[in-house]
Computed example of a mutant assay.
Amino acid sequence: MIRKNISLYEEDMKKIGRIVEKNEGNLSAAMREIIDFVDFMLRKFGSLEEAKKLERRTKGVCLPRGMLNWFLTYTSECLLDEDAAGSIEEICAIESVSDLAEIAGIGLPVDIKVDADDDRNPSAVTIRLTGERAHTEFVAKIIACFLAENHGLAVEDVFRHTAFTTLKMKREGEGKRESEGDYKKVRDSLIKHFGERHIMVQEILNKPRFWNAMIKATAEWGDVERYKYPRIYR
């Protein structure tokens, strides 16, 4: 048994109060339990920072991999709306372009590297995202929508590779959406590079009965049946 003297502030005692109470006021037993817990967390997560990332993820919804892939497939080439983007804590906390790397904290295994001409008021930004193609595509879309909305940047180009995606954006006009023409250029660039199905999907969502009837009337009957009764066509 090793005996050591430690100094604790009143605030520290409040933090461990429940564990001390659990151990019937035995501070030594409480400290041993805390040490066991810290050892477990370090072996599982490696650091407090990594454990905090997990805590942020559990505020949302944990999806099985198959369900996540389904979600990414069916939202592909559709832009985020303002409510969806505003619900992401990592987005709301961004104060500078370099903070964009924090978006990796939403739970997707994507590494983000940011290069900008100005951290606070950029006119040109290049972002490299490394990870699975579907994951980097989704995160790149989130970043593009954020930079377009908050800094008036248009998508200049997107380079897509198996292991990484590179996003290049630049400012249209002299300031944040300086004119209606600049706004249209920014919006059109998002639709071109990340939202080819966006207008179509919005139209279908607004008029589901009309488009459902239209598709049934014009599509090949076999295709309609395949979507209605997929099990039969396995």
Rank of each mutant, 00 (worst) to 15 (best):
I106S: 09
A134P: 12
K141L: 06
K113A: 10
I143S: 03
G105P: 06
G107T: 06
F146V: 12
A116R: 01
T136R: 03
E132L: 05
P109I: 01
R128Y: 03
L129I: 09
L147I: 15
E132T: 09
E132N: 10
K113F: 02
A140E: 07
L108Q: 00
P109M: 11
I103H: 04
A124Q: 10
I127T: 01
I103T: 02
N121K: 08
V125T: 10
A134E: 09
S123Q: 08
V155A: 04
L129C: 07
T136Q: 03
P122E: 06
I103D: 00
D119Y: 11
R120L: 13
A134Y: 04
G152E: 03
T136F: 05
A148H: 06
V110F: 02
E132S: 13
H135K: 10
H151Q: 13
K113H: 15
A104Q: 13
T126W: 12
R120C: 08
I127R: 04
P122T: 09
H135R: 10
D119T: 10
T136D: 00
T130K: 09
L129T: 03
I142K: 01
P122I: 02
F138C: 02
H135I: 03
D115T: 15
A116T: 05
N150R: 07
S123F: 08
I143L: 06
